[in-house]
Amino acid sequence: MTGPILEIDTLVKRFGSRTILDGLTMSVHPGEVVCFVGPSGTGKSTLLRCVNGLEDIQGGEIRFEGEKVEARSKRIVAVRKRIGMIFQQFNLYPHLTALENVVLAPVVVHGEARKEVEARARVLFEKVRLSHRIDAYPAQMSGGEQQRVAIARSLAANPHLLMFDEPTSALDPETVGDVLAVMRDLALEGRTMLVVTHEIRFAADVGTRMVFMDQGRIVEDRPPRDMLADPSTERAKRFLSSIQG
C-alpha cells in the first residue's frame, strides 16, 4: 500500500473574521475518487482551492505528494503542475481554439515541444470525444463540449490529481451525461479525483468515498452507497433527501 497522495491536517481557512474551513482533516490515496457533497456555502470549493494554493490558509497543513502546499511560496507552481482543476464555469481561454487551450500550459509551463504536445492533445480529444471540434473556439461550443475541452486541458499536463468543482452544474441537462461519461472513464483509468458534485447517481456509481461537509467540517466520510442508503447523521440525511428530490 502506497502512502497518501494528499494529506490535509486540521486545515483552517478564514475570509476576514469568518471561518470557512474549521480544522478539517482528511487524506486521499492514489486511485480514490472522493465526492464532496454538502449545502451551499459550506466550503467545498474553498477546500479544493486551498489544495492547489489558489487560496492561502490560516492554520493547519496541506501536503501533496509529501510536499507542503503554500499559496505564496514559489514552489506552488510545482504543485499546480501536478494537479488538474476543472471549474464550474469551464474558464476556457476564449481567444484560443480548443486545441490551443489544451496545448498552452504544457508548452508555456512545462516547456514541452509544441509538436509532441499537439500529438498528445489529439489523443486527449479522442478520449473526451471531441476530435471533430478541435479547431472550434469556446464560444462556438456547447457547455458540455467546453467542459470536456477543459477536462482535456487539465489532462494535458499529466496531472497526478484531478479536482472537479461542480463540473456539470452550469450545463444544460442534455450535455451533463457526456461530461459525466468522460469523468467515469477517468475514474476507471484509476485516476485520483476530488469531485464536488450534486450528481448523487454519479457519486454512488463512480465514487469510492463520499464526504458530506457542513459549515466547514467533514460530517461524514464513507463509501457512497453506505452513506446514501443510511446516512448516520441527521444533517446528512436531510441534505441528501433534499437534493435527491
Binding site: 510545482a78 499546480r80 482543476m85 471549474f87 474558464n91 481561454y93 500550459a105 508555456v108 487539465s154
Partner: peptide, 22 residues
C-alpha cells in the same frame, strides 16, 4: 474575468505568462 486568472494559475502559469498568453 477572474476565472481566466484562476484557470491559468491552476495550470501552473506565472504572472508574466498569464499576461502574455491569457
Amino acid at each position: 474575468g477572474k476565472g481566466q486568472w484562476e484557470a491559468a494559475h491552476a495550470s501552473g502559469m506565472r504572472y508574466p505568462a498569464i499576461m502574455r498568453y491569457v
